Computed example of a mutant assay.
Amino acid sequence: MKLVDIYFQLKADVNYIEQELERAIDTQLRDLYLSSTHLLKAGGKRIRPVFVLLGGKWGTYDLDRLKHIAVSLELIHMATLVHDDVVDDADKRRGRETVKAKWDNKVAMYTGDYILARALSTVTKLANPQIHQILSHAIVEMCKGEIEQVRDLHNWEQGFRTYLRRIKRKTALLIAISCQLGAVASEASADLVRRMFRYGYNVGMAFQITDDILDFTGTDKQLGKPAGSDLRQGNITLPALYSATKGANKERFQNWIAQGTLQEHMDEAIELIRRGEGIAVAQSLAARYIERARQELAGLPENQTKKSLLEIASFIGERKF
């Protein structure tokens, strides 16, 4: 199943959010406009805005309220991508030049700051203090996740819990609050707000674990960047961590790490991870998170919203790009 098919019921509203994203970062300063819209025009899954809209279906659905959250969260996501590409020295994102590559690091950093500022400005149109408390807490946690990733670059002594905590902060939390804030803004019940957060958290964890799998198993065309890019940059994800500490090729990895020669054997290491047990272990864990997400929806009314949430969970668990 394609994501576009799942989105079909929300097509008009998703298109409206897309237009609102463009309006939110519009500026008369041409250079800033070009750099800010560069990533936006590259497209994307827009999964966070869709989760906001679906979360909003559990209460009084009001697109004029939900759009402020949907736009804000997608802009926050975009800002982190622009900044990440500077930190990672990445030249490609979604098959296109990054802002950093097309302009330079300084432009990219200020572009990311501008997009983040526009995100925060957008959400101020909603007066509910709970929304701002949830959002500000999430941004703080996301920053912690980014710092943890920098701290743990090339650190093969990190445990699996460290990895899971990092991806919770870097990825899962923003997806969780997308579902949660949609429900909050629509004044859904407290039980549904909690369920939407937990559903989003579990889907978000599976989303990032699947991303980390695809970084090894996907093609350059599918990924829009070379396979194994995370490991080449020193970002150690679950498939690599398992292969190097518990897999059949553990001894070879440990020798490379101890001798400081892993970079010299990087192509071989990536191939060993691609064919190793770490991929299956990561797939199994992602599947467990997807099942937990499904369980959060158990007992809810059988309607199109529930069906869409279940279908998105299945897509994330099975996606190949």
Rank of each mutant, 00 (worst) to 15 (best):
G44D: 04
R94T: 12
A12T: 11
K45N: 06
A42S: 14
F51D: 00
Q130N: 00
L53Q: 12
H132Q: 00
S121Q: 13
R94S: 12
P129A: 04
L116C: 09
Y114M: 01
Q130P: 00
T124S: 14
K67H: 06
T122M: 11
G59F: 08
W58I: 06
V14S: 13
A90S: 15
R65L: 12
A138I: 01
R23E: 11
T37C: 10
G44Y: 01
H137T: 01
K11F: 06
W103A: 09
T27P: 07
L120E: 11
H38A: 11
I76P: 08
R23S: 11
T124A: 12
I17E: 03
G56K: 02
M78V: 13
L81H: 04
I76A: 09
D26K: 13
G43R: 05
H132A: 00
A42E: 08
D62H: 03
T60C: 07
S35V: 03
G112V: 10
L10G: 06
L32E: 01
L21I: 14
T111W: 08
L116R: 08
D26G: 06
L75N: 13
G112M: 07
L73I: 13
D31L: 13
G55V: 00
L39C: 05
Y61M: 03
Y16H: 07
W103S: 08
A101S: 07
Q19H: 04
G43D: 12
A79T: 08
G59L: 02
H132K: 02
H77N: 10
P49F: 03
D85F: 06
A138V: 09
L63F: 00
H137Q: 08
F51V: 04
E74M: 03
H38W: 14
I134R: 10
S36T: 10
D89C: 03
S121N: 11
T122L: 06
L39R: 07
K106S: 10
N105W: 01
A42H: 03
V123W: 05
I47S: 05
S36Q: 05
V82N: 01
D113H: 00
S136T: 12
A117G: 15
R30I: 15
D62V: 05
K41Y: 04
E18V: 10
P49H: 09
L66E: 01
T80M: 06
